[in-house]
Design a protein around this nucleic acid. Structure first.
Lengths: 189, 189
DNA sequence: CGAGGCCTTGACCGCGGTCAATGCCCGTGG
DNA sequence: CCACGGGCATTGACCGCGGTCAAGGCCTCG
């Protein structure tokens, strides 16, 4: 149950088994169906999720009522609505599974307890954030000033799983193009 | 000389004057002209800059040779080419002042020395990254699926200094629109 | 088996990009 | 101090990328 998580942690630095088990003991299992909402708009994020199996997305709604996908996370990654989680203010996004999934979640309390008491876990947290930051930047720069075709190629290069696992519609809103355009582009590759 | 930096640090948490001076002693002053390059593409970032006065941007070039502005930092903010700074790999961007500026810089060595020896500084670093991450996200979400007019309005709301301090051309490339379009939009507000 | 949602594809058209002309600002050198 | 030149802002004309709308077919689930 914790093997993927343990792999993840071990990749971050030396750790003894006792500490590893201590960390894992704060995570609980959650099995979900497709399209299950883990956090709604305006709720306050109190859990950090690690994806054992499956996929999760962050999304929001426009005034016109259509969904915009912001971020997709797959097996072996952490995900939450970070601004809400950090500052305990209402989230401006939804968290939702996009397929049947197995998640390990840790409460904010336990999370910060680990951050404060285990230096390695603090380091892991910092690295999660650094990585998130760098990925965000790459995404901004990968999209900035590019047309639809170039953006699709960029995603194929940098997030190859995405177009395979995610519906046309979700991927299109993530790319900031219409489903029609994405469909047309894919038919030409 | 260190007053702005001290303000910045004090806002992050309780700290005694001795530690504050200890931190500041690792920063050196750098006065620059307009358009001075602090880091070039493919160089490795070894300094973290704090902006005492002035403004700095990150930018890169397209294959066609035109500049794309990625990020602007103003008085009271930290800036560096983070992916390069963290992993010591060649930067994929330039750092440049856009006006005569006064910067305080700290070497990577000293920076990590402070992170490792002063818990408060480690906390500050984490918060810088968190903030950077959140700002990146806001930018992605503020631009995603919006047309030129909406993006301009978003910047006016969220980074009011930007359009005032930055040339039309730089701002346009930051927004992912052409200078012509930005000019037309501004004339209608 | 029926209904609803998504993907695909065609027709149309509008936003915003390119190109070019003009004018302004500012830095440089005589 | 003024003359010149280069770069940027502005604005008009044009047009192409990609968005909307709609129709048809497929898949999924009740």
């Amino acid at each position: 149950m914790y093997s993927t998580l343990k792999e993840f942690i071990k990749r971050k630095g030396e750790i003894d088994n006792k500490s590893l088990d201590e960390i894992c003991s704060h995570f609980q299992l959650l099995k979900t169906k497709r399209n299950e909402i883990l956090l709604s708009y305006n709720q306050i994020a109190t859990n950090y999720y690690f994806i054992n199996k499956g996929s999760v997305r962050l999304f929001t709604n426009t005034k016109e009522g259509q969904e915009i996908s912001r971020y997709f996370a797959f097996e072996g990654n952490f995900v939450t609505a970070l601004p809400s989680f950090i500052d305990q203010k209402p989230a401006e996004e939804f968290i939702q599974t996009i397929e049947r999934s197995e998640l390990l979640y840790i409460s904010r309390i336990d999370f910060y307890y680990l951050v404060d008491t285990m230096p390695l876990f603090a380091k892991i947290y910092t690295e999660i954030i650094e990585l998130g930051f760098i990925v965000s930047q790459k995404r901004i720069y990968g999209f900035q000033g590019f047309d639809a075709l170039e953006k699709v190629k960029w995603v194929i290069q940098n997030q190859p799983k995405l177009l395979l696992k995610v519906s046309n519609k979700m991927a299109a809103s993530y790319l900031g193009i219409s489903p029609s355009t994405l469909s047309r582009i894919k038919s030409k590759l």
